[in-house]
Design a protein around this nucleic acid. Structure first.
Lengths: 190, 190
DNA sequence: TGAACGAGACGCTACGTCTCGTCTCGAAAG
DNA sequence: CTTTCGAGACGAGACGTAGCGTCTCGTTCA
């Protein structure tokens, strides 16, 4: 029933590459479909045929490039493992280049509910779930309180981080990451 | 030395009112300077003379209308007082109308550093500081650990909330507010 | 052979700047 | 205290520009 679309993979890649390239050159607000089409050597219609707008293009470019879920390490020390992941996330947010991309997606997310859902499910959930799994293992090992609401606990770890990044409310350093983990751990530990 | 600008207060109010009106009618992304000017019965130049763009207009419209800092209640029960403020914030984020406005400002904030600073200092800081003050009083009353980093602690309370709202990561209910306060309190209490 | 393709024309909307002629205010002059 | 007058803000809207999303064109390719 579904007619297989004869899509040109070369064009698709050229578009995604051009989009990422332009994103890092001009920043998200000044990124235009016309520029992407020109850079990719592609007709505008080819973009509009397959994507709904620049947000969708960027999202696919990122998910396409993104690393796999990357399960959390489990060294047996819950605090240390959380420190590792929170430090990594802090570093990501502190990096101007990566941060710019995250801002881009976040902007689009704020005004497009469908896109927000995609971002959440395809990019964020896998990471948050892996932390949730690690917390569950921590509970089994007696390093985390048994009664914890794990969704809420994950938010307790990442929420302050997003908050500080979003509001530019303070420095994003390794020390901050460690302090955050320590404070959260005093709510997590039995 | 500074020549006092002879600004027309009537126009200023008309512009701010029109902006808020249109914001609630059409939503932020479709809000245009031209529409604001037309609705306010004002030349476009009058807007561009005094503001840098629609973000700045909306920000002033909001700060102008906003309630005063509103110091937190101090009933002597830290947990109860935090519950009150977090419940109120959750309700604000859950309200589609208020939430739309917050999203609007947040979008602008993400792509305009100067505006972000203004929002942070004029809208957010006062509220966060009042919570910080309440926490300090809680320390004095022996309801909060003495060694707490209060900036971090405030983020521990509000961060998860912003996180869930931003990512549309779950329901924003009174029960959620209470659970959040309880979890955070187990990191705050001695 | 038919759908996707590169190219780009098209009308549209909003941008931000500009130029009108008018109005308003505050200081100087009477 | 009143009149005059000049500078600057004002409403209105024309202007060129940019990017939007849609729409043909031939052309290519599976």
């Amino acid at each position: 029933m579904t007619t297989t679309p004869r899509r040109n993979e070369r064009s698709r890649r050229a578009i995604l590459d051009a989009a990422l390239q332009l994103l890092s050159e001009t920043g998200y607000p000044d990124l235009t479909i016309e520029a992407i089409a020109a850079r990719a050597g592609v007709g505008k219609q080819t973009i509009y045929r397959w994507w709904r707008g620049k947000g969708a293009v960027i999202l696919e470019a990122l998910t396409d490039t993104a690393a796999e879920p990357a399960a959390l390490p489990d060294t047996g020390d819950l605090r240390a493992d959380l420190r590792t992941v929170i430090r990594a996330t802090v570093a990501e947010f502190a990096d101007p280049k990566l941060s710019a991309t995250t801002r881009a997606i976040t902007i689009e997310t704020l005004s497009d509910e469908a896109l927000a859902e995609q971002v959440r499910d395809q990019l964020l959930r896998p990471q948050l779930d892996s932390v949730k799994d690690r917390l569950r293992a921590g509970q089994a090992a007696g390093q985390a309180r048994p009664g914890l609401d794990l969704d809420l606990t994950v938010e307790l770890l990442f929420g302050p981080l997003y908050h500080r990044w979003l509001l530019r409310n303070g420095p994003l350093t390794e020390a901050y990451a460690d302090d955050l983990v320590d404070l959260a751990m005093s709510a997590i530990a039995p």
